[in-house]
C-alpha cells in the first residue's frame, strides 16, 4: 500500500514535470534550428546554434538590454521586498480598525487592468519630465516606481505575517529591541522563505514587464529584454531561430533566480528558528 502510494506520487510528479518541461525544452531545441524548422515545430536539435547566436549578437544589442533589465529587476525587487514587507508587517502586527480599512482600500489598486491607468500614468510622468528628468519619460526611475509599489506583495506579506509567531515579537521587545529592530532582527530572518518566494515573483514580474516599459521608455539604448524580443518578432519575415535564441537568453536569469531561491524552501527551516 505504502509502496503503491509512493509509486503513484512519483508517477504523478513525473508526468507533471514532463508536461511542464516540454515547451521549455522545445524552446531550447529551437535555438539550434533554422527559422523554417522552428515554424514547423521541429522537435529534434539542428545545426544552426552558432549561426543563430551569431546573427542575434550581430543584429541586436542584446547585452545592453540584458544590463538594463537586470538593473531594473534588481532595484525593483529590493524596493518591493522592503516596502511591501514593512507594510505587510505593519498592517498585521499593528492591526487597528483604521489600518484594516486602509488595507482594504489598498487592495482595490490591484483590481484595475493596467491598460486603463496607463494613459493617466504616462501623463503624470510626462508632467515631471522637465523638472525631474530622473523620473520623467524615458527614465529608469519611471519604469521602476509604479511597478515597485504594488499592493500584491503587501497583501502577500500580511497574509504570511498571520502565520508568524507573535510571541517572537514580544520576546524581542523585552530584549529591548526597537520596533524596527524587531522587524529587521527577528521578522526578516524568520520569514526567509517568504522573502525568497516574493523575490522570485518580483524579479520575474519585473523581468517580463512589457507594457509599461514599452510606453515609458523611448530611446533604444534603454530598452529592456521584452521590448527587444517584441521588435525581433515584428519583422515581415521574422527569423524564428534568432527569436528563440533571444528568448532563451532572456529566460535564463529568471530560471537562475528561481534555482537559487528555491533552496530556501527546505522543510523544517522554520522549526529551527522557532525552537
Amino acid at each position: 500500500m505504502k509502496i503503491f502510494q509512493r509509486a503513484s506520487i512519483y508517477t504523478f510528479l513525473t508526468i507533471a514535470a514532463i508536461v511542464s518541461i516540454f515547451p521549455f525544452l522545445w524552446m531550447i531545441v529551437s535555438v539550434t534550428n533554422k527559422s523554417v524548422d522552428v515554424t514547423q515545430g521541429r522537435l529534434l536539435p539542428g545545426t544552426h546554434l552558432v549561426a543563430n547566436l551569431q546573427k542575434l549578437f550581430e543584429t541586436v544589442d542584446i547585452v545592453p538590454a540584458l544590463i538594463n533589465s537586470t538593473i531594473i529587476a534588481l532595484i525593483s525587487t529590493v524596493l518591493t521586498l522592503l516596502l511591501a514587507s514593512l507594510a505587510g508587517y505593519g498592517f498585521e502586527m499593528f492591526r487597528s480598525r483604521g489600518k484594516d480599512i486602509v488595507f482594504t482600500i489598498l487592495l482595490l489598486s490591484m483590481m484595475i487592468p493596467f491598460a486603463a491607468i496607463m494613459v493617466p500614468l504616462y501623463r503624470m510622468f510626462g508632467s515631471v519630465t522637465n523638472t525631474m528628468p530622473l523620473f520623467g519619460i524615458d527614465s529608469l526611475g519611471a519604469v521602476i516606481l509604479p511597478t515597485a509599489t504594488t499592493a500584491f506583495f503587501i497583501f502577500f506579506f500580511r497574509q504570511n505575517t498571520k502565520m508568524f509567531p507573535k510571541d517572537l515579537v514580544e520576546a524581542g521587545r523585552i530584549d529591548g529591541l526597537s520596533e524596527l529592530g524587531v522587524f529587521f532582527r527577528i521578522y526578516v530572518p524568520t520569514m526567509k522563505t517568504t522573502y525568497a518566494a516574493a523575490a522570485i515573483i518580483t524579479f520575474m514580474n519585473s523581468w517580463n514587464n512589457y507594457l509599461w516599459p514599452l510606453v515609458i521608455l523611448q530611446s533604444p539604448e534603454k530598452r529592456t529584454i521584452p521590448l527587444l524580443i517584441s521588435n525581433l518578432g515584428s519583422s515581415y519575415s521574422p527569423d524564428y531561430g534568432v527569436i528563440m535564441s533571444a528568448i532563451v537568453i532572456a529566460t535564463l536569469p529568471t530560471a537562475l533566480v528561481f534555482f537559487l531561491m528555491q533552496k530556501h524552501f527546505v522543510a523544517g527551516m522554520m522549526g529551527s528558528v522557532k525552537g
Binding site: L83, A84, L86, A87, Y89, G90, F91, M93, F94, S96, K99, V102, L106, L108, S109, I112, A116, I117, M118, V119, P120, L121, R123, M124, L145, P146, A148, T149, T150, A151, I154, E179, F183
Partner: peptide, 26 residues
C-alpha cells in the same frame, strides 16, 4: 499605534500616487 502607521505610510503614499490617482482619472 503611531509606529504601526510609520511602517505602512510609504506604501500608502506610493500606491496613492501611482495607482489611485490614475484610477480616479480612468
Amino acid at each position: 499605534k503611531k509606529v504601526g502607521w510609520l511602517f505602512v505610510i510609504i506604501s500608502i503614499i506610493a500606491i496613492t500616487i501611482f495607482n489611485f490617482y490614475p484610477m480616479v482619472q480612468a
